[in-house]
Design a binder for these strands. Sequence first.
DNA 1: TATTGTTATACTCTATAACTATA
DNA 2: TATAGTTATAGAGTATAACAATA
Lengths: 166, 166
Amino acid sequence: MDNLEHELNTHCLSNWPAPPHSLIATDPLYRQFRSVQAAFRRRAQSAMTDCGCPQLLHGSANVLLQLEEQDRLTLTELARRCEIDNSSLTALVDDLQRAGLAVRERDPSDRRQVHLLLTDQGRTVAPLVRRVWQQVQQIAFQNVSIEDIEQMRLVLQSIETNLNAR
Amino acid sequence: MDNLEHELNTHCLSNWPAPPHSLIATDPLYRQFRSVQAAFRRRAQSAMTDCGCPQLLHGSANVLLQLEEQDRLTLTELARRCEIDNSSLTALVDDLQRAGLAVRERDPSDRRQVHLLLTDQGRTVAPLVRRVWQQVQQIAFQNVSIEDIEQMRLVLQSIETNLNAR
DNA sequence: TATTGTTATACTCTATAACTATA
DNA sequence: TATAGTTATAGAGTATAACAATA
């Protein structure tokens, strides 16, 4: 165990001063993120059900919104924008296709590529889903000022960059 | 589809003014949370490995830290503090016990209850794990001011409360 | 009957590796 | 050989429901 202690001090901690107590005593930040993220997904999913929007996986709804911003993307590009692996996207696209909101279309000039297209129904539903998500954000942001939210987004972006660096 | 539109307007949106464009055009907030949370877990897990800490599930490490704050909790109380279901806790406790960091002990006066106790090894390892998590937070917070972080925590707390209300 | 904890099961999100079909 | 997409598989995190033991 002494080795472990030594290892930790040598390789891990030497460059990091002790953080202020207030930041660490309670509530690891990751817990707050987990809780907020889970609550967000729960609310969005039940709001979609309440509004009669098609029952979609949370991930599929996200793909739908990406597609609404730009239609006809290839699957690889869609996966990149959703920040998930190609293989993770397949099931979500299947979900959208099953719900009749999008269709795959193979690219004739490069038959390896598949584009995803909104159907008419998809074009109708996407804005509704977007509004439901906005509504959940509205609920989340009750009694929080715009400035605080924008500031938080900036901080989140910094944290994201820091954690993904190297 | 008209029904859907009508339903949405009637039951879901009437109370919510349109949010400012900057909040919604890009990047749903949930994506940022997902990304930060995943990055946090990834970094913490690889930092634990680098430092020779026992290989624990992220969730088990969390239980360990709760237990360090108060030893000998019942499993139900631990689950409550970790904000997970009783049934979800079982595997995490198994994980800790397998690693030799904690042991279950049945309460003699109410034999339904099981308390979880840190072992000597658990008492040694817990502060190291805590420091690894702190280190990850330090990485996350590079070039972010204390004030911004504290402010973000407050906003997160409001959001959490708002989303879980009702 | 109610409570504590476990088991069985399932769902979501995600990834890696192996595969098919193109290029 | 390299790329686009799919399939098979697995692992982590979570929940619900049924259950056993105990109160």
